[in-house]
């Protein structure tokens, strides 16, 4: 089983939002919903300021509370190791939405839960996820962490990476490298 991860080089994100809309169009995400976002967080007082632009999406956690919470097994770990939803089995109970600490899920208009799939359909064809493909800053990097030759493996070996809400114990597969503030923003 591959271990697909996304590494986000925070320094290279310029907040252009190309990823946000590329994802919507690639996946036909319904109006009013997004599977990924760019969060802008500024600290300090004029003129001593710093700011982080942080892409957020489903972390495809290794210990995924959304899977555990699902009563119908609609939320499941797919063969490729990603966390997916079987919409035929989903009853829209929202248990996964409550269980996910990352606000990565939503209920789409047909009443079932939905979220980022890591562009599973593209990975199958050997392509990168749409958000990675279009990232103007090459800030989003995707690959199989178990492949030591992959960009993601090399980056995570070289730089200290952070994950969101580490205390939640979910072992996320989306890693953040912030060379300016390696300990976290």
């Amino acid at each position: 089983m591959p271990r697909y991860v996304m590494v986000i080089d925070v320094e290279k994100c310029i907040g252009c939002m190309a990823c946000v809309i590329a994802c919507k169009k690639e996946n036909g995400v319904a109006d009013g919903y997004f599977r990924t976002r760019v969060v802008e967080e500024a600290r300090g007082e004029f003129p001593y300021l710093r700011m982080e632009l942080r892409s957020e999406l489903c972390n495809h956690c290794e210990i995924a509370p959304c899977i555990d919470a699902c009563p119908t097994r609609a939320s499941h770990r797919a063969k490729d190791g990603t966390v997916q939803i079987d919409h035929k089995k989903c009853i829209g109970c929202k248990a996964c939405i409550l269980a996910c600490p990352y606000d990565a899920r939503y209920i789409r208009p047909d009443g079932t839960a939905d979220k980022c799939t890591f562009c599973q359909h593209r990975i199958k064809e050997g392509k990168k996820p749409a958000c990675v493909e279009t990232c103007l800053g090459k800030s989003r990097i995707f690959g199989d962490l178990d492949d030591p030759e992959s960009d993601v493996a090399k980056l995570l070996k070289r730089y200290e990476a952070a994950v969101r809400l580490e205390w939640a114990g979910t072992k996320p597969r989306v890693f953040y490298i912030n060379k300016k503030f390696p300990g976290g923003f």
Partner: peptide
């Protein structure tokens, strides 16, 4: 694309702006 490539290569960026723009960060 080229700007972030330069950032990745360690270029020094100097931003002159009354506003702390995205690129100022």
């Amino acid at each position: 694309q080229e700007f972030t490539e330069a950032l990745g290569n360690g270029a020094t960026v100097i931003v002159v702006d009354p506003r702390f723009s995205t690129v100022a960060s």
